[in-house]
């Protein structure tokens, strides 16, 4: 909570050139007290609070991970090779996201759109994998209400899946907006913003994959 890390501008006597009310309207140079743009700071704060959201869900899962009583348990269900493949695809999407951000910074709109689409596609594959996985689990006897383990597993991974799906919709809409020139504000920054979100969702998945699938119960 300490603000010690935030860089302070030197004691300004005169209003610096380009000093504005800090509103996000297009085309005006910004000046902010921290030097970070408003949207970027807001995204970081949002992701900070998301950490606690997933923290709560992961804690719930860790508490209940073995409480399946006489019902089906995780060790009977996991298909580690498959989940590793989906995790790999999601990780690769972070790479393509980086490509998109770098293309956007170079103002290479063509490639930005390409990489964003590819990122969305890879994300879509991941979600498809999750849908497939949930279907097989359900067929194998793990309903949402079967046990504490099942409820907390589906809730945690479901929340993550929804985050990925929202990310995909944002990516695709971004492509459409770029194509139609409808984007409000700085293109590169908007791409970077969604990139931050996307990387966050990926990192959370790495955590979930490790804690839920890899560490034996």
């Amino acid at each position: 909570m300490s603000d010690a890390t935030i860089a302070e501008p030197s004691d300004v006597e005169e209003i610096p050139a380009g000093y504005d009310d800090g509103q996000d309207h297009a085309g005006l140079p910004h000046h902010t007290s921290t030097g970070l743009s408003n949207t970027k700071l807001a995204m970081w704060l949002f992701l900070g609070s998301e950490c606690l959201l997933f923290g709560g869900l992961i804690s719930t899962y860790m508490l209940y991970r073995n409480r399946q009583a006489d019902q089906i348990g995780p060790d009977q269900l996991w298909d580690i090779p498959f989940t590793s493949a989906t995790s790999f695809v999601l990780l690769m999407s972070s790479l393509t996201m980086v490509m998109a951000v770098s293309a956007a910074k170079r103002k290479d709109e063509q490639r930005t759109k390409l990489w964003l689409t590819v990122t969305a596609l890879l994300g879509g594959l991941f979600v498809a994998g999750q849908v497939y996985e949930f279907t097989t689990f359900y067929r194998e006897g793990l309903g949402y209400t079967t046990s504490l383990f099942s409820s907390s597993f589906y809730t945690l991974t479901g929340f993550h899946g929804v985050h990925v799906a929202v990310g995909i919709i944002m990516l695709l809409s971004l492509v459409a907006m770029l194509a139609k020139g409808k984007l409000v504000g700085d293109n590169a920054e908007t791409v970077e913003m969604i990139g931050l979100y996307w990387h966050f969702v990926d990192i959370v998945w790495i955590l979930i994959f490790t804690l839920v699938y890899l560490i034996p119960a």
């Binding site: 596609l121 994300g123 879509g124 979600v127 498809a128 459409a176």
Partner: peptide
């Protein structure tokens, strides 16, 4: 966007 991603997810 939803239709696009829905098709990919469903079909795959």
């Amino acid at each position: 966007a939803a239709i696009g991603i829905g098709v990919v997810v469903y079909a795959f």
